[in-house]
């Protein structure tokens, strides 16, 4: 096992080769905001919230998909990075229809948390008010595309942990959306095992249990962690 040493915000850290900068930062006690990252599933670098600055590299790189290498000098907080992160969150708000006041995830929402973290109090972009659907054809769950930020956590959790691969992404640009099955109503998708992992994975109120009312969402994130450690480390207790 080879070890690499690097500096994150002037803190020296030593991590196993192949560790991502996000994990290395955690090791160093440095918090980097994320949205598309979910412990236990692969990273895709979709949200760009975890951008960091690396000495000698002209562009900003996402920490969740960048490997730590020997001698790296990483900075996670600069005025430029703060501005970028804020902009990313503002764009997410302007892109969908996020009405926190009546959302099932109000006060239990990672998008909200991150908005607060990056100091966003309004968006400088024009709201797009896209026309998007709500699918509540599944007997237990519903998806409200208005609140989806296309992080693909549902896609990965369903594929990599549950092994059902109900979710996917279809379309491009503004037409991109997560779909169930072959873009069928969720209730018609036989592959769905109704395990509810996508509810636990979704950072917003996009995927919810039916019957959930405003601000009532209840996720069991611990379950995902448990399943991952159970498999990787054969620890079957919570």
């Amino acid at each position: 096992m080879s070890v690499v040493t690097l500096k994150i915000n002037d803190i020296d850290v030593a991590v196993e080769a192949g560790t991502t900068l996000l994990d290395a930062a955690k090791e160093a006690g440095v918090r980097i905001p994320t949205l598309c990252h979910l412990d236990g599933v692969s990273d895709v670098g979709a949200c760009r919230l975890c951008l960091v600055q690396i000495e000698g590299i002209p562009k900003l790189l996402p920490a969740c998909v960048t490997e730590a290498t020997e001698g790296m000098n990483v900075t996670t907080e600069t005025p430029e990075l703060q501005e970028y992160r804020r902009m990313v969150v503002e764009m997410l708000f302007a892109e969908g229809n996020h009405v926190c006041a009546v959302c099932v995830a109000n006060e239990h929402c990672e998008l909200q948390d991150v908005a607060i973290e990056v100091g966003m109090d309004h968006t400088r972009f024009t709201y797009r008010f896209p026309e998007r659907e709500v699918d509540i054809s599944h007997p237990q769950f519903g998806i409200d595309h208005n609140r989806c930020i296309l992080c693909t956590r549902c896609v990965r959790v369903c594929d990599e942990i549950e092994g059902a691969h109900v979710w996917d992404v279809s379309g491009r640009g503004p037409a991109a959306k997560v779909i169930t099955g072959l873009n069928q109503p969720w209730g018609d998708v036989d592959a769905c095992t109704a395990c509810g992992k996508c509810v636990d994975a979704c950072p917003t109120g996009s995927i919810f249990r039916k019957g959930t009312t405003v601000a009532e969402i209840d996720r069991d994130r611990g379950k995902l962690d448990f399943l991952v450690t159970a498999r990787e480390e054969k620890k079957w207790t919570r």
């Binding site: 009546v102 099932v104 659907e133 519903g142 019957g211 009312t213 405003v214």
Partner: peptide, 14 residues
Amino acid sequence: EGRPMFEMAGITAR
């Protein structure tokens, strides 16, 4: 229109 019925209490309270 189009919203899940369960949200109505929260929406109308607003």
